[in-house]
Write a protein that binds this DNA or RNA. Structure first.
Lengths: 212, 212
DNA sequence: ACCTGAACACCGTTCAAGT
DNA sequence: ACCTGAACACCGTTCAAGT
């Protein structure tokens, strides 16, 4: 049976889930498709092009059914959560995105919606664009660390344990205390904390004055 | 002449600056050292170990001469700027960090100093740790994008131009307008904007109430 | 139009053997 | 202790040739 571009793309996403970004190989993908190495290159001109298509596919529908009447901060938080969920839905999703420069269709839709919400918060064009960047960096960084911690060399010791062992209580007392007080290092609650930080900073930054 | 571990490390950083992370190869490094491929593996047991050593070397002295009497927000901003400078000092520095899980000595010193400053802002152990993460994600994300834009395939068209071409004014009016109002997409001013957002959010988040 | 088969120019890593 | 030489098991990409 003939291969379609969509088939290559969706199989690539499956392979990503199964083996991770590091092991996602054009040769392995071709094998999964039951085809020779070169065949994949007829549908995508390079691995980079395939990765970009995968990244954009992960964002499909990210702005669907947004409530345009919701207050701006709810829309900002909602978009951040949607991006987070999209990144976490696939193994190494965040790292896949971080490796790309992406003026890709769905990513642009996301950016548009985010900037629109921030404009409604009273921000200038410039501040809205920059704030959208800050929120997006946070979402990406948080998701990347969450997935990195989940996919570490599985010696049986999870990321937190490795970190705890590396911290000397005398040299890093605050870090040591913080680790003792933070049982589960990641997850939704952790994510929401940082997101709230950013959103709370917006009204304070929308004016001209600054506390710095 | 015999190779030293320090010599391998510093040459690796030179090669990174010259050819970028993608082209930084154990074989190329060995060639630069005037030595066979396998020789490098006597000093570092894997490429991963070398990359970690490089990352930590880039953070050398990151907490030196901090003023412990400065107000907390100045210390937080100062540490963020120091991290940013360290990342930007080497080609692909931010991406190098993003690819590692790092309980590395200098990174821990940075974390310790950051959490200490946030504790002085009145935060709990948990909130201080989480806020430190948020600030660090932002610094990393911003630096990574800045370096990515700088090192794109040089068709003569810089990142902004590529982005502008991809944006349809009808589908993405806010994005289009924002691009028109943001001539230089990156740099210190852009960075400070997002940093201010985070720092301004801290007092608002230090209490129990939340606006979300 | 779509795929095969085979090659090209690379990788990271290991390891006996040398000095 | 430190390095050579050579191999192992891979990569992404290209491209004539087939159908």
């Amino acid at each position: 049976m003939r291969l379609s571009k969509e088939q290559v793309l969706s199989t690539a996403l499956d392979v990503l889930d199964e083996v991770g970004l590091e092991q996602l190989t054009m040769r392995r993908l071709s094998a999964r498709l039951g085809v020779q190495n070169g065949a994949t290159y007829w549908h995508f001109r390079s691995k980079q092009a395939l990765l970009e298509a995968m990244a954009d596919a992960m964002l499909a529908g990210i702005v669907d059914d947004l409530d345009p009447h919701a207050p701006w901060h709810a829309r900002v938080a909602g978009l951040a959560h949607r991006l987070r969920r999209a990144l976490l839905a696939r193994r190494d999703g965040a790292r896949l995105f971080a490796s790309l420069f992406f003026p890709l269709p769905n990513a642009l839709d996301y950016g548009e919606a985010m900037i629109a919400a921030l404009r409604d918060a009273g921000m200038s064009h410039r501040d809205a664009a920059w704030t959208a960047d800050a929120v997006t960096y946070y979402v990406l960084g948080h998701a990347a660390e969450e997935q990195l911690a989940a996919g570490l060399p599985d010696d049986g010791a999870p990321a937190t344990t490795r970190l705890t062992r590396a911290v000397d209580p005398h040299r890093h007392p605050h870090l040591h205390a913080a680790l003792a007080h933070v049982p589960a290092p990641h997850g939704e609650e952790h994510f929401d904390h940082g997101l709230r930080l950013l959103v709370n900073g917006i009204p304070a930054s929308a004016g001209t004055a600054s506390s710095m």
